[in-house]
């Protein structure tokens, strides 16, 4: 059976630790640091290799991070390398960020529009999305001419489709039958 260890569960665990110690910002910084260094491929290869003894991996990690990270962050790294799942680190980071955002009441929204928006339009869309989601939204904008007009917004797994191309598709479907 494939290994189904989930980054979400790690992120949840870290979040509860961080909340207990009241150092969420420190954790965000640490996770970013870990991610930056893990972009080094040869390091990841060594850490993922089942041949290398765990003691060696831990000593490498200690040498790299010993001074910059606290004990718990180091423990997380040790745990991931023992489980050969150091790859999860980047997902853990984004999941952790999501949990933190959700807790603060911030919702990340990806908005697609046909033309670039001015500030007035942006605030208008932001207001609409904030009423719908009931949270303060953090918008990132993407321009795509294919949607013809209107906008599309993706919040988590929900797609709000107010684009012209969608309306045309709906009409096409209803005319088909």
């Amino acid at each position: 059976m494939p290994n189904f260890s989930s980054s979400k569960r790690f992120a949840q665990a870290i979040y509860s630790i961080a909340k207990e110690n009241d150092n969420i910002d420190v954790w965000i910084k640490n996770l970013e640091l870990i991610n930056d260094t893990l972009s080094n491929e040869s390091l990841v290869t060594i850490l993922n290799s089942p041949e290398k003894p765990i003691a060696l991996k831990c000593s490498i990690l200690y040498k790299i991070y010993g001074k910059s990270l606290d004990k718990l962050s180091l423990n997380l790294l040790y745990l991931l390398s023992v489980r050969n799942s150091i790859d999860l680190a980047s997902e853990i980071k984004s999941d952790f960020q999501n949990i933190v955002d959700l807790d603060k009441g911030i919702q990340k929204v990806f908005v697609t529009t046909a033309t670039s928006l001015d500030t007035k339009q942006l605030t208008e869309i932001k207001n609409i999305l904030e009423t719908i989601s009931g949270k303060s939204v953090n918008i990132s904008i993407d321009v795509n001419e294919n949607i013809i007009g209107g906008f599309k917004a993706v919040m988590g797994d929900t797609l709000l489709d107010a684009s012209l191309s969608n309306s045309i598709n709906q009409m096409k479907k209803s005319l088909k039958y």
């Binding site: 007009g149 209107g150 993706v154 797994d157 929900t158 797609l159 709000l160 489709d161 107010a162 012209l164 969608n166 309306s167 709906q170 009409m171």
Partner: peptide, 16 residues
Amino acid sequence: SQIEEFGSEITTVNIG
């Protein structure tokens, strides 16, 4: 009524 309402409705769907 179709023309008047055209483009005004927002559909909400689950995506993946």
